[in-house]
């Protein structure tokens, strides 16, 4: 019963967030700010993690299929598909849920408990639309960019591990990542990431926006935001993989 009430409140908040903004110039400005805050500031973490994971997947795949009958380029194929199908979308989304989700939830939560949201409402401004919509647009547009970045850097990480680590000849790796490449996988990864961005931002906004209490509750709600959006991401992953991966 409580869950149903929560879901209802979540959708009502989304409805308010997606109602017509007061001024489009303000929406544009806020969206640009959010792109910087949520997107550009996540570049470094995505690059570092993807680089290492790309290298590690390459080394481990090589270790696991050390069968002289299988051609070396298969390792490149495996690394590419792991990155495209799961890592650069779902795993990166989980990392972003931790980084961006918690920051959204605590920002809104802090604004709630210090009455800044009330201050907006009382001016006659739709605080949900002013605060949440720009974050939504920014993340849904920008997280796919981060996903693309993660794919590229992850492949580069795999390549470096071949060059530096004596795994397989780098030329075999390059051959592998081109072998039987389906561009559809890229759009699949980007679509998934856009969904995840929506989940992260809406769920974290919901938990932040409705905080009651003080600093302790803000902390709790930001933890809850990360946990819930991670669970929802994994569920969505299952559903999306079943429905849109052909």
């Amino acid at each position: 019963m409580k869950l149903l009430a929560q879901i209802g409140r979540y959708f009502l908040l989304m409805k308010r967030a997606f109602s017509r903004p007061e001024k489009f110039s303000v929406l544009y400005r806020q969206t640009m700010r959010e792109m910087e805050k949520t997107g550009i500031n996540s570049f470094s973490i995505v690059v570092i993690i993807s680089l290492f994971v790309g290298a590690v997947i390459t080394i481990q795949t090589n270790y696991n299929i050390e069968n002289p009958l299988l051609p070396n380029y298969l390792i490149g194929v495996t690394v590419r598909d792991s990155l495209l199908l799961e890592f650069s979308s779902t795993m990166v989304a989980l990392i972003l849920a931790g980084k961006v989700g918690s920051s959204i939830a605590s920002e809104l939560g802090m604004m709630r408990v210090t009455e800044q949201i009330d201050a907006m409402e009382v001016m006659g401004i739709n605080s949900a639309s002013y605060l949440i919509l720009p974050k939504m647009i920014a993340t849904v547009l920008f997280f796919p960019v981060l996903c693309l970045l993660s794919i590229i850097v992850g492949l580069a990480g795999g390549y470096f591990s071949c060059v530096l680590g004596d795994v397989i000849p780098p030329s075999d790796f390059i051959e592998g990542i081109q072998y039987g490449f389906r561009p559809y996988y890229i759009s699949y990864a980007l679509t998934k990431t856009a969904f995840y961005a929506f989940i992260i931002t809406s769920v974290s906004s919901y938990f932040g926006y409705y905080v009651v209490g003080g600093a302790v509750e803000v902390g709790k709600s930001s933890t809850r935001a990360v946990v819930q959006s991670s669970i929802l991401i994994l569920m969505a992953n299952l559903i999306l993989t079943r429905t849109i991966l052909q």
Partner: peptide, 19 residues
């Protein structure tokens, strides 16, 4: 309500400035 709210100024206990 929005209409009347635009004629309303509120000072909150903690000032509630946008930080």
């Amino acid at each position: 309500k929005q209409h009347i709210r635009k004629e309303m100024g509120v000072l909150f206990q903690g000032a509630a400035l946008f930080d």
